[in-house]
Design a protein around this nucleic acid. Structure first.
Lengths: 354, 354
DNA sequence: ACATCATCTGGGAACGTTCCCAGAGTACGA
DNA sequence: TCGTACTCTGGGAACGTTCCCAGATGATGT
């Protein structure tokens, strides 16, 4: 053991900034103990801030740690403590939509904030192929995370089943049916959609359509159900168009199609703000005035809403709170508490588009 | 050891869907060995698909694995193999911008694709506070990842210094100056900005301004430098407004400010597409026609570009390629090869906004 | 003077893998 | 028949921690 040496990955710089790595032995807790003239146990106690360490010992260890460049090996630590202090967040989103949906970022940050405070590391795992799906399942099973938050799950998502199978503490954001009995943080999409559609009808609209999206997800399906409920006998299936994703493009095309089917349409409920933004563009290009000729309402109150002209009337869904609540549900389970599903409040934000 | 039992985390369901966890002992490789009537070594060989395992043994092991519900403990595996087959991707982005910037999603997916093919797990770590910064540094140091990709780094980012310090194979997306000598995948922002500004000038504009953003980042600074280079003697510092972030809001306000300073302005280079979209809204609200009265160009060719009316003339930057290239640079280093910095091509996409 | 208690330290054992070596069995050619 | 090579299996050792117990030391109370 090279005395006084610095055990780190060796870096060998070659010409103009490229570099190759020569892996040297990393310092272990024993190297620190030797350097400090103390035992492994004492070093461990210092590292973990336990009591019953003399001031001299503490100082000697800290100095030795700095001298040999010691960093704790978490794999070894996880192995013996049987925990990782990390929580996985699984993002299973179609390619094109990933991160165009501002909700995902908010959910992530909300979850991160809660976990950060509890001194857990959030690790995000994205699933973009079947291969990913398997690898992520292995990762989750392998003891590298103590729990998981699952967002944008499809009904019958295999990864959710895998998680339930191994009994990893977990929580959903949203509440896809057909998924295992795991706690979730969600909003009541049916109720919210019913409310905003009702509000739109109160402005005196006679012929109201909907651009529905993502019917393979609970949110998409429920928003359509809420719309139908609000319309009651006035519901006309011919005035509903369906698209696979919550996108601007869906709104654009969807609105054009609706205008083709019903030129005198005077109200539209778009399944998300992005969809609503696309719809407004289509309306304006077709020479319709918003809100005079056609009232438009959306869903999410994402950054899209303020970008529209006029600004969008929409349902505010607390995306950050969904993330933080789901994280709390996981933490609760980690402490042996029950994870009770939670339904968060939505509110209608009425602006100029209807 | 409960014979024939299934060693998994126990789940105890209580009333109405809430559940508590009772952690039971997980099956180990020894349990599998016992159940199969074989040895640890043989089970390990089957798990890792090594040769020199008889068909009977293989079958017996696979059956035993299923019977006892065995999943490999990755912490133990990482400990002995000294690798994790995971690559960290560090996202250090201001709260409000996270994931409103479509580039980040593309970079992530690009990196994920490359790593997935090489059978590495991508784990994204987001930094949203100083506390996060420390925790992420610990995570990276702790042996839980074999390498790292750093995106949206600031000049003098502490996390980058930490990575270089421990010698973890890493690569930047972008090339902030003042950061350690790590390889990077980047575009030439100066050149690209110079080109599109030049192209804008060719349309006969006399008075051209710029809405600059994110001057604390290499991309923001370089785009301004390129603008100035293209303008040459016509450069007027009074026609440059500066905002901290690449946002729609910056474009909106920036354009209003520019119009105040120079009502006869007939061209604008916005530092990103989101900024350009905001600028176009401001112009249209001020009664200016685009492109007749004012030509607008952006940067990124993100989904914003197609959303604008008219669609945006912009610089296409291959965000997915940036991600995948950075990932490749990390993989190369993992194989002992040098990680040579790479500068990717940009192209001008000319649409209707100028 | 002695028992008791708190403080501090050392080091064996365990966590669950993979690696590697030794050894048994079989096949084949000289 | 024997040597050699290949196939297959078992199990000791090691990876780098934390946990826990035993023991030393010093302070305190009776």
């Amino acid at each position: 053991m090279p005395a006084g040496g610095r055990y780190v990955y060796g870096l060998r710089y070659s010409t103009n900034m490229s570099l190759t790595r020569t892996r040297a032995r990393r310092a272990t807790i024993n190297d620190v103990a030797d350097a400090a003239g103390l035992s492994r146990g004492t070093v461990s106690r210092v590292m973990n801030g336990e009591k019953y360490v003399s001031d001299e010992a503490k100082q000697a260890v800290e100095e030795a740690i700095a001298r040999v460049g010691y960093v704790r090996n978490n794999a070894a630590r996880n192995l013996v403590t049987q925990e990782s202090r990390a929580i996985g967040l699984i993002i299973h989103e179609p390619h094109s939509l990933l991160f165009e949906d501002p909700n995902i970022g908010s959910i992530l940050l909300g979850a991160n904030e809660v976990l950060s405070k509890a001194d857990y590391q959030l690790v995000s795992l994205i699933i973009d192929s079947d291969r990913d799906s398997r690898r992520v399942a292995d990762y989750l099973r392998g003891g590298l995370v103590d729990g998981a938050v699952i967002i944008s799950a499809r009904a019958s998502d295999p990864i959710a089943a895998a998680i339930a199978d191994i009994g990893l503490p977990a929580a959903f954001v949203g509440h896809p049916e057909g998924t295992p009995a795991l706690p979730y943080a969600a909003i009541d999409n049916v109720e919210a959609a019913r409310n905003i559609t009702g509000r739109l009808l109160q402005t005196g609209r006679k012929q109201v359509g909907m651009i529905a999206s993502a019917l393979d997800r609970d949110s998409g399906k429920d928003r359509l159900a809420g719309f139908q409920a609000a319309m009651g006998s006035r519901f006309d299936p011919n005035l509903v168009v369906e698209y696979p994703l919550y996108t601007y493009a869906a709104g654009l095309e969807g609105m054009q199609e609706l205008l083709r089917r019903a030129p005198h349409l005077d109200g539209v409920f778009a399944a998300s703000d992005a969809v609503a933004a696309g719809a407004m563009t289509a309306l304006q290009e077709a020479g319709r005035r918003v809100p005079e000729d056609v009232g438009v309402v959306g869903f999410d109150d994402s950054s899209w809403a303020l970008r529209c002209r006029p600004q969008l009337s929409t349902v505010r869904q607390p995306a950050d709170l969904l993330g933080s609540t789901a994280a709390e549900l996981v933490l609760a389970q980690l402490q042996g508490l029950p994870g009770t599903p939670r339904v968060l409040e939505t509110t209608i934000i009425w602006r100029g588009s209807a």
